[in-house]
Design a protein around this nucleic acid. Structure first.
Lengths: 153, 153
DNA sequence: CAATCGTGGATATCTTGTGTCCACAATTGA
DNA sequence: TCAATTGTGGACACAAGATATCCACGATTG
């Protein structure tokens, strides 16, 4: 019943990008430092987001990442499905190979209700909802300079 | 975002007990066979339920387990908390050691909303809701005799 | 050409869920 | 009283998945 760090990393990175001035890109190291997320791992996360169509990557010098949509148009459900795949709570969410054999799977309706609840929250929450209200200040400062942002090149 | 098998085992075992005639006990092997759950692992699950106060265990010969409350009085939330502890989706659900430092943890409200949703579903669903409506037949039959119910003594 | 930056994938590590095993205590019936 | 049965407790083993690391490579720009 835990959300993965990967999912959390993805969200926070997207929020970071959303805070940038329109059209501006941020490079991996900057995101990594600001979130205290290992750079080489963040790279993998970002690749998912790129393939998922939420983020554009710019190769080469002065490259980086930038949002491909308005924050209002990026829902947590999209992010979740890109990072984790379809939302499910048990193995046999739809197909009943095992459970229905025993008791007609009386808990299946509960899992469905559960998914609907979570799904609708995820669908209704967009990146825009995660932007700090009172913040015009552009970029948050990292806590520690050391540790991260070292590998990869 | 997955529920553990352990939680599922617990629920199914409780449902099994709930189906028994009032006051009757079932032994470990019977539950294990009916659910195709490894007996030695089920033992551990049952211990949790005993300590959690949902189930009574009877030692010695002709021992077994039986429900300690009416199915209507056992909620999924109780079962969850007994098996998994407090319901949480991220590390820092209440205490904010890390996230608030960066962005005031704008996602925390989302996680809270999420928890409330799940929690209320769990709280409103009782064992009674998981009993098959049309079933007077006492005990479901196992699929395969082999494999489980062998270890332990 | 050289420096920068993201890509891709193989690999390593760590954690946790899941499962196993065995000695032991309690209970009951012969 | 003895032996069989049944749950208890904890140590241990195993597997899978999340998390992290590394390195060779392609793209881009000055």
């Amino acid at each position: 019943m835990q959300l993965s760090k990967t999912f959390d990393y993805a969200i926070r990175s997207l929020v970071y990008l959303a805070k940038l001035p329109e059209g501006q890109a941020a490079e991996l190291r900057a995101i990594s430092l600001s979130q205290s997320v290992p750079m080489s791992y963040l790279a993998k996360v970002m690749r998912h987001l790129v393939r998922g169509g939420l983020v554009t990557s710019i190769l080469g010098r002065d490259g980086g990442y930038s949002l491909r949509k308005k924050p209002r148009d990026i829902t947590l459900l999209q992010v979740y499905e890109i990072m984790e795949g379809e939302l499910r709570f048990v193995e046999c969410m739809e197909n009943d190979r095992n459970c229905s054999l025993f008791n007609g799977c009386t808990q299946a309706p509960v899992w469905r209700r559960l998914r609907q609840a979570v799904e609708s929250i995820f669908r209704e929450t967009t990146l825009a909802d995660l932007l700090p209200k009172n913040a015009g200040e552009s970029v948050p400062t990292p806590i520690k300079e050391s540790g991260y942002a070292r590998a990869g090149a």
